[in-house]
Amino acid sequence: MENFNYHRPATVNAAAALLKKSKGGSYMAGGHTLLPTMKQGLASPSDIIDLTAIKGFSGITIGKSAVVVKGGTTHMEVATSAAVKKAIPALAELAGKIGGVHVRHKGTIGGSIANSDPAADYPSACLGLGATIVTNKRKIPADAFFTGMFQTALKDGEIITEVSFPIPKKSSHMKFPNPASRYALVGVFVSQDAGGKVRVAVTGAGPKVFRVPDMEAALSKSFAVSALAGISAKAKGLNADMHATAEYRAHLIGVLARRAVEAAK
């Protein structure tokens, strides 16, 4: 791992100024994506700007209609929050399935979303609940946020300060983890809002998180496993690697979507 300058600013503005001044710096929150990437020699930032000392950068607030998670909140905080478990149980469950305990103690929601790993879990909750990603500059709807494999709508230097998840009527998350890495081979997040509209978001299967319009339309008419009969995900364009073929991933989408609908609460 190459050496770098290290900074630990106390405010979002100071962090943004430090990044701007650096030659090729990077923010770091939990470091559980950045440091492994640097160890592999895939990244060598000139500066690391550690966001974890910023005051008020982590925490959870539950409003009337939304759960707001600050950018630096760890996976463990979300997984064990009694308030999240009550408002959006599937969100707490999803956070509790990320990596292992040690990863959850360090990894943050902002880092996960900024990274847009095709196999990461949080992007499916963002898209599956129609979340809003709040930065130090603007608000970005989840539908416009994840633009590609490891690509997001974030501009250079933009910092995720909050993610706001609308509280649904029902939701559920199902994950088939890769047994070695614990990342999602396929993960499916399903939600039904107060008006009955359904979102189905899939991670792990394609180059980025995506929605399944056929399933959403059928479930919006009737929120039952039977509504999914005859609807299958297409294998074309899905990921294929040593762990699973595109056909297998497509099959898993159907299985996990049915299980998610059955378990939704």
């Binding site: 470091g31 559980h32 440091l35 690391i48 550690d50 463990m76 040690h102 990863v103 360090k106």
Partner: peptide, 9 residues
Amino acid sequence: KAVKSCTTL
């Protein structure tokens, strides 16, 4: 808290 010291500066 239990953490990985290989992934901490």
